[in-house]
């Protein structure tokens, strides 16, 4: 997804929230282009939820501006909301209504949503067999799907998901991820998602903003990190002491440590063949070499100074 060529659909400009002298969100500014999945990362209490709720107008801004498709959320709330679809935390629906009635409820608020559109969305999230049942008989996964249906009924330009994977089983999470991919690809919707499940965010997002103490620390593209040559190399060897000796002697400035019967090396992937050759020459038995790039979690912990509470 080429972020630069796409139209910007959501802009945050110096968004600030102060409650009783304490700054919860501090001068947040960033842009999200159409078709991108944009993630919010941060330790608990960093201001993720507050920021998301300011975007949808549930919480008022002390200062700053949120602009959706050129419309200010603060000044023209109703107009701005026609472009936003949201699932805030668990998708809470009216349990005494059927899934269909719930969708009718949300559809009525927007002008011009035809019955056909409701049916289409129901099909899209795969609820057509159970849609006329009361929501109280739905499983959490089904409620989540109904939540997605409700959020995309009016073809919004921006979809906002606050902790959407809370309480979902792995299959449900995967399902949600697939929907989001499909929506961004097929309908060009920008998705803003906050979660504390880092591995999920890694799979879901194109870019992530890292927030700590209400401040934006970094916005980075996840494509870059997966392509990054920097890797963690684990080598299973017979004689760890000998292998350690050989490698430290031959390669200078090598980040290497012994982990049980394994060597852990942080280095460029291009170095792997050299390392293997060196070990073979020195007659060290190799049982396996495994390399992995640095996970988002590692990077995240690095950046936020390990202040993560998951």
């Amino acid at each position: 997804m080429q972020a630069t060529t796409m139209e910007t659909v959501l802009q945050l400009r110096n968004v600030t929230k102060k409650i009783g002298g304490r700054t919860i969100v501090d001068n947040l500014s960033f842009d999200v282009p159409a078709g991108e999945v944009f993630g919010f990362l941060g330790p608990n209490g960093a201001g993720k939820t507050t920021t998301i709720r300011m975007i949808v107008g549930l919480i008022s801004m002390t200062k700053g501006e949120v602009i959706v498709k050129g419309v200010s959320v603060r000044k023209q709330f109703a107009q701005a909301m026609t472009h936003i679809g949201a699932i805030v935390e668990n998708p809470e629906m009216y349990k005494f209504l059927s899934g269909y009635q719930n969708l009718v409820h949300f559809a009525r608020r927007h002008s011009g949503i035809a019955k056909e559109r409701i049916d289409e969305v129901v099909k899209l999230v795969g609820l057509q067999n159970r849609i006329h049942e009361k929501v109280k008989r739905y499983s959490l996964g089904m409620r989540q799907r109904l939540g997605v249906a409700q959020a995309i009924l009016h073809r919004p330009s921006v979809l906002i998901l606050d902790e959407p994977t809370n309480g979902l089983d792995p299959a449900g999470i995967r399902e949600l991820r697939d929907y989001l991919r499909k929506l961004t690809r097929d309908e060009g919707i920008a998705v803003i998602v906050s979660s504390h499940l880092l591995s999920e965010m890694e799979l879901m997002c194109d870019r992530v903003a890292i927030i700590q103490g209400g401040k934006l620390i970094d916005v980075r593209s996840l494509q870059d990190t997966t392509d990054s040559p920097q890797a963690r190399i684990m080598i299973d060897v017979g004689n760890t002491a000998l292998a350690y000796q050989v490698l430290t002697d031959s390669i200078s400035d090598l980040k290497i440590s012994i982990l049980g019967k394994q060597l852990e090396i942080e280095s460029d992937k291009a170095l792997i063949p050299d390392i293997a050759r060196l070990l073979v020459k020195a007659d060290v038995d190799i049982y396996g070499i495994h390399s992995s790039h640095k996970s988002l979690e590692d990077q995240f912990l690095e950046m936020t100074g390990g202040e993560m509470v998951v």
Partner: peptide
């Protein structure tokens, strides 16, 4: 019910 969030995040 928790539905207030969805109710208020609407074009009204």
């Amino acid at each position: 019910w928790g539905t207030i969030k969805l109710l208020l995040v609407g074009p009204a």
